[in-house]
Design a binder for these strands. Sequence first.
DNA 1: CTGAAAGCGCTTACAG
DNA 2: CTGAAAGCGCTTACAG
Lengths: 354, 354
Amino acid sequence: MTIAAIAKEIGLSVATVSKVLNGRPDVAAETRSRVQELIVRHGYRRRSSPSSETSTPVIDVVFETFDSPWAVEIVRGAVAAAQGEGLTVALTSLEEGDERRIWFDHITSRGTRGVILLLSQLTETQRSELHSRRLPFVVIDPRGEPGPHVSYVGATNWAGGLAATRHLVDLGHKKIAVIGGPADLLCSRARIDGYRAALETAGIFLADSLVVRGDFTVVGGYEGARALIARPDRPTAIFAGSDLQALGVFKAAHEAGLKVPEDLSVVGFDDLPIARWSSPALTTVRQPLAEMAAVAVRILLEVGEGGDPTDRRVELATDLVVRESTAAPRCRPSPGRSATEVVSPTRIAEPASG
Amino acid sequence: MTIAAIAKEIGLSVATVSKVLNGRPDVAAETRSRVQELIVRHGYRRRSSPSSETSTPVIDVVFETFDSPWAVEIVRGAVAAAQGEGLTVALTSLEEGDERRIWFDHITSRGTRGVILLLSQLTETQRSELHSRRLPFVVIDPRGEPGPHVSYVGATNWAGGLAATRHLVDLGHKKIAVIGGPADLLCSRARIDGYRAALETAGIFLADSLVVRGDFTVVGGYEGARALIARPDRPTAIFAGSDLQALGVFKAAHEAGLKVPEDLSVVGFDDLPIARWSSPALTTVRQPLAEMAAVAVRILLEVGEGGDPTDRRVELATDLVVRESTAAPRCRPSPGRSATEVVSPTRIAEPASG
DNA sequence: CTGAAAGCGCTTACAG
DNA sequence: CTGAAAGCGCTTACAG
């Protein structure tokens, strides 16, 4: 696609098309939009020279916030995977107010090879623009139900929630609470459903009041736990929904004078680096964040080389990692089990350093 | 700088220079090297079109490892600052084995506006190449003594080490240990020197055996603390050198059955997000990592616009943030002080969320 | 191994 | 508001 080809197709001069591309004001509004439409449809990109790109190719990672170690782990994985393929990772944060409209132009102007979106909810327009420009993109942990033609990468959140809760059930807990994440997050809902399924399977009554809503941050976990701990029939175990929320639960327990795991068992979700180093070390569900990013990079490359851009959906397996934050409830002893033993579904080897 | 200008200066045709740039084989070795020399000296970059770059400009952040939240905070700050200026941040990790030689070519080929190096130690060659290509660069927390013409951004590490240690002295501690970082890190050495200065000022004997070497990771802090705790005359307070090392100290204390701060006071350095959320919350020295990154971005832009590229050296102020991990030693009570009060040098307001 | 010439993709001052 | 024409920075097939 060259400017000349577009000009010919639309019956205009090369000069006029060039003006539209460069945002000059002296073009009739109608002409401009007709040209723009063609540009988008053909996925036109400025050819800096006859030969194909000499510069290092770039893929973009677009995230809403860098606050959480969750995003950090994904970015780290993406950098590692991309670098292995000779690609550079460019970062775009949606935190800054009005960037929501701008990132798209920036990315497309840079001649990106593909876009990885974290937790994002694409508008219909953005989706079709990405498609029409032939720009490969993948969503990691989509915010809402992804459209039918959107590739995404996630983890087995439901199975993870199930494993976490079953672990608590197996230890003998009956009053097990959960602190969920944002309601619109697919992965958050799946974890809670896993929790529900585990309780139902165990024949434990599912009290709605034991399901608390958080936001996946430490503060969210802290506040959720405070509410739960204040209840007269306070739970003996909390599935915290995320590692950050688990840290908040630790904090609330600490303040209330409750010892973990003696007075309160806590399970996280993610297995961030902190999980191993909190005191006590956190029992959690490991999500292979770096691998998820690597898979996303691979999808981008495959699609870039002509693979089918639609319907690539991957969920990577989660594993329960048992550390020190879970134990049998105090009043009802259950068969002893070493606190650092790794149980189902998978046995995880824990390297000493991190 | 255009191909034509170079050709004229060296007395060759435009075609020949073009061939060198594109790595064609049909050029005499001597001709090639003469041209290459000029290219480097003039910092030639392919102009993709008559008008200056239409695509979103990029700055590069090059780091050794993304493991530590320290690097993450800097990257986050750089993304925020860069985006405010309409720039995109590209990430290059030096973790991957042989990338050390490659990153340089990648970066320069991409037409970067500037490079931010974290903790890096540039070789003399790299330094002069960056200079000769007119590529602005800044080092954040340089590994060794930076050369005389290298811009860098850091924090007042010495003052921070001093404030941390004086805080412990003020609480009544006499046996204060320190866990340092890697010996070749300027910032690490400055922190330990600040510690020494505080003890000397207080007239406390400086036992060399209380100075332990770490590596700024959780494991380093854990091992250092284990060694210190095992001593017959174990210290009543540890200045952990970094927040991550402080978490390791917490862990070691927890395992040894020591309570923080009752049995052992701990001070960190960095004020990473975890510091507020550990149990107990960590007293630490705040380093303004995001601002450091913002300053680095600003330097890059100023130099890019013709500012003097040399001798820009900035050290931003650190602040002691007192939380719950420090208290007077058990045996020797000292004047009471609220554990969450913020003391010298600066009073810090602590927002509730994070 | 070198370079004159043709050509490509693009932009812009300017005439209409 | 449009486009013919000049021009820019670059590459490449080809003659020497």
